[in-house]
């Protein structure tokens, strides 16, 4: 198609970026939880929580929130 609406193309690009960010969150969260939680016999504490929760859930959660705020406010184009 030669004359696709640029607004549609921008929205599609943004949707692909969002899907990729979801995949990154999945890999980080499950990967770190597997390494420090499922696969580990011992439990350590960081910031008052089990280490696997701190680095596998809370840190990526904060990162995802910062990314969502930044992406929402700065990267999604006004149409």
């Amino acid at each position: 198609m030669t004359d696709l609406d640029p607004a549609f193309l921008r929205a599609r690009k943004e949707a692909v970026t969002i899907l990729l960010s979801w995949a990154v969150c999945l890999l980080w969260t499950v990967g770190v939880s597997w390494t420090l939680g499922y696969g580990s016999g011992s439990m350590h504490i960081a910031l008052g929580m089990p280490t696997w929760v701190t680095f596998g859930v809370v840190v990526p959660w904060v990162a995802a929130t910062v990314f969502s705020v930044w992406y929402g406010l700065r990267c999604i184009r006004d149409e």
Binding site: I18, S21, W22, C25, L26, T29, V30, S33, G37, V53, G56, V57, P60, W61, A64, T65, F67, S68, Y71, G72
Partner: peptide, 11 residues
């Protein structure tokens, strides 16, 4: 971990 995908759900 069960609820973790709410980190990216708003986006």
């Amino acid at each position: 971990l069960w609820i973790a995908s709410y980190m990216i759900f708003p986006l």
